[in-house]
Nucleic acid binder design. Structure first.
Lengths: 135, 135
DNA sequence: ATGGATGCAAAAGTTTTGCACCTCT
DNA sequence: AGAGGTGCAAAACTTTTGCATCCAT
């Protein structure tokens, strides 16, 4: 006997005030945000949203492809999606995060993945160092 | 008035049974271990070490340059140091971790860091995808 | 004796979950 | 009414810290 279970998920998510606030915050800057930073920024703006809602909202927005996630130093950060793909360079002294894109690095990653028989789905490249100001 | 404080740190660390057990475990396999996995593996081997000691030991061993650390998916993993530098490829289905090294990728990272005025100190490159078996 | 290491338990930090309530069709 | 969202508090997890005790000089 074969049992097939369909799990029907809504195709579109409800854009509530909370979700809108989080999305607007992220889309309104080039920064990388973690849940804590979002919570603090919204509070300063008199929009207090429960931290649980923030976590749930970030998952939902990421799954919907409306924001991008990067893990930086064991912590998930989110940024707006309307930038072309890029990787990150983090200053270990001041925390500054810079973005870069290098087509050759991208290409070589695909090459090496193929060589290992991997079907590449994504990557995370973070360069650590000292920025110009902190050297 | 200028006060100079010298903090004298021991140059060598004491190789206690606990530290030896952790080091032996890591050096005895090609795996990547997190604190939990180490704790479980040692228990199976009738060597129970307090989890706090494991965390402290891992820091100490890493600082001493006896093991290497990699952050994979928000969690710090440790592996033996006696391998040449490499990056990682993680199968999102089965968790398999493969290693690779690509000199051109290394070189290009240095190029791009220099171009941004960054003094590069390290990097973390993890490729996500599906391994041959899981496709 | 003394400095370092350990184990335990408690604390801290981060993220998830349960649940009652609310909101929008 | 029903599905989905929210806030709060509690729980779950991971990692760190305080402290009494132990161990090896």
């Amino acid at each position: 006997m074969i049992i097939i279970i369909f799990i029907i998920r809504p195709m579109s998510l409800r854009m509530t005030p909370q979700r809108h606030a989080v999305l607007t915050l992220i889309n309104g800057s080039a920064r990388h945000w973690d849940a804590e930073a979002i919570s603090r920024a919204l509070q300063k703006n008199d929009q207090r949203i429960g931290i649980a809602t923030i976590y749930r909202t970030l998952s939902v927005l990421e799954e919907a492809g409306l924001i991008a996630a990067v893990v930086i130093g064991q912590r998930k950060h989110y940024e707006r999606i309307d930038k072309p793909h890029h990787d990150h360079m983090v200053c270990e002294a001041c925390g500054r995060i810079e973005e870069f894109f290098h087509q050759d690095i991208e290409t070589l990653q695909h090459d090496i993945a193929k060589r290992h028989g991997f079907c590449i789905q994504g990557h995370s490249l973070v360069i650590f160092g000292l920025c110009r100001q902190c050297q």
